[in-house]
Simulated assay, not measured.
Amino acid sequence: MSKRDYYEVLGVSRTVTEAELKVAYRRAAAKHHPDRNPGNVAEAEVAFKECKEAYEVLSDASKRRAYDQHGHAAFEHGMGGGGGGPGFHDVGDIFGDIFGNIFGGGMGGGPQRPRRGADIGYRLDLDLEEAVAGTEKKIELPTLAECDDCAGSGSEDGKLDTCTHCGGRGQVVMQRGPFRMQQPCPNCMGRGQTIAHPCKTCHGNGRVQEDKVLEVNIPAGVDNGDRIRLAGEGEAGPAGSPPGDLYVEVRVREHEIFTREGDDLHCDVPIRISQAALGDIVRVPTLNGEAEIRIPAETQSGKVFRLKGKGVKSVRSHREGDLYCTATVETPINLTPEQRELMEKFEATFAGEGARKHSPRHSTFVDGVKGFWDRMVS
């Protein structure tokens, strides 16, 4: 029976990303897990192993390249790079198997060491205040955990038998023309041992699907893309092997006032025309309370004021960033009749050539327009 295409097994396209592949694998594995198919356990086990095999190949960059080029044949004769896949040999394994068998050596002749559990990725969304100050978050994630009933061995009585197919070596010899090559035993998957009485809870897999709840300590100063590693909190390894790790990736939500650039914060501070013209002291928010900014007279819109040490304390260097406040002069709205009259009188004072000294940018703009038209006419 020919093997199905690995991409088809996981229901993904050949351009699938690493993150999309992981999601697809979890979905497929959960769907076909024997615990979720009590009425058809045997067929579910086959489908579950098929999903696992497909993911082990496609999640490894070198194996995936080999599979894309040669299909399943890449793993039948040791083509491609990397080990651990079904029938897969790296360069060292190929030479070890060939010369070990030709000259009677014992290279690569022992059972394979069980592979550690898969790493898990989790995206954690935080408010800016939480990221800056640090916090603790409780997260819940689905994962493969060690079966308590069999302590991860997969055996109901804890006993493992020597594989009769490979004699406990974990590998079998295949004749390929003039060469004799070794490959993992298909009966025990390279472990050298088999289970006579599979655990009824995990059906011999040694792992069960469950939702894990964890407390994650978020250090102060984390930013978008930072990853926090929780060692040993990934998926349980097969046959009692070590678990993988959990990587929590931080995503900081947009803030209504502040934007962050590295360890610095930025915000806009709206001021009235009268404050910009006459000068004033305005209060601005910071992540640690309020602060004052002295607005000098004749301040133009866009002027930036720096508040040293009011930014974010770096999670790495512990350096404190700054807060940059950009003054934004607002045009008044909803004027009362009295205010409108005063504005009209104020505007009337700018009549004539003397008004140029009060509006430096406007004068520059007018001169620029005049020069532009002069060049166009000439």
Rank of each mutant, 00 (worst) to 15 (best):
Y6H: 06
V12G: 08
S13P: 06
V16L: 12
A19H: 14
V23P: 07
K31G: 07
H32M: 04
H33D: 04
D35T: 12
N37E: 03
N37R: 10
G39T: 11
N40H: 11
V41C: 06
A44K: 08
E50I: 04
K52T: 05
K52H: 10
E53W: 07
E56Q: 04
V57E: 03
V57P: 04
L58H: 05
R65K: 14
G71H: 04
H72C: 02
A73H: 09
A74R: 02
F75Q: 00
G83D: 05
D90K: 01
D93G: 06
I94H: 02
F95T: 09
G104W: 03
G104H: 09
G105D: 13
G106Q: 14
G109S: 15
G110I: 12
Y122Q: 09
R123V: 15
E129M: 13
V132K: 08
G134C: 05
G134P: 07
K137N: 05
E140H: 10
L141T: 10
P142S: 10
P142Y: 15
D148G: 15
D149K: 03
S155W: 03
D157T: 02
D161W: 08
T162W: 05
C163Q: 05
Q171W: 10
V172H: 02
R180F: 04
R180N: 00
R191Y: 15
R191T: 07
G192T: 00
K200P: 10
K200G: 15
C202W: 05
H203I: 10
V208P: 01
E210H: 15
N217K: 14
P219H: 02
A220P: 00
R227T: 14
A231W: 07
E235Y: 11
G237Y: 01
P238E: 05
A239I: 00
Y247G: 05
E249T: 03
R251A: 08
V252C: 11
E254T: 11
H255L: 00
H255K: 01
H255A: 01
F258S: 06
F258Y: 01
G262L: 07
D264W: 06
D264H: 06
L265F: 00
H266R: 09
R272E: 15
I273M: 08
A277W: 13
G279T: 14
V284H: 03
T286W: 09
L287D: 05
G289R: 06
E290Y: 15
E292D: 01
E292S: 14
E292Q: 07
I293M: 09
I295H: 04
I295C: 06
I295G: 00
P296Y: 07
E298A: 12
Q300F: 14
S301H: 10
G302T: 06
K303H: 14
F305I: 08
F305Y: 10
R306K: 01
L307C: 00
L307E: 04
K310H: 12
K310P: 03
V312G: 07
K313Q: 09
S314P: 06
S314C: 02
R316P: 08
S317W: 06
H318L: 04
D322P: 01
D322N: 02
T326R: 04
T331V: 15
N334Y: 07
T336A: 02
P337V: 11
E338N: 06
L342D: 13
M343G: 14
M343Y: 15
E344Q: 11
F350M: 03
G352P: 09
E353F: 13
H358E: 07
R361I: 12
S363W: 12
S363V: 13
S378I: 02
